[in-house]
């Protein structure tokens, strides 16, 4: 069982066995989007920021 700590609220999160690097997951406690950046050992970071922009 792989666990990581949410960088936003410090909740302990259990990753599913099928999780992939760069997958976006949601912290079950605070709801923030996280990106799995490594698996051995497992690491998560806040998911990419969402911006808005005009233009094509």
């Amino acid at each position: 069982m792989i666990t990581v700590s949410c960088p936003e609220c410090a909740a302990e999160i259990t990753l599913e066995e099928s999780v992939e690097v760069n997958e976006i997951i949601v912290c079950p406690d605070c709801g923030v989007d996280l990106e799995v950046t490594a698996l051995d050992p497992a690491e998560v970071e806040l998911a990419p920021m969402e911006e808005e922009d005009w233009g094509e």
């Binding site: 990419p48 920021m49 969402e50 911006e51 808005e52 922009d53 233009g55």
Partner: peptide, 15 residues
């Protein structure tokens, strides 16, 4: 990330 960046998502008002 492999190229040294911190990725961002963007939503555009254009087409």
């Amino acid at each position: 990330r492999q190229t040294g960046g911190t990725p961002r998502f963007v939503y555009k008002t254009g087409t």
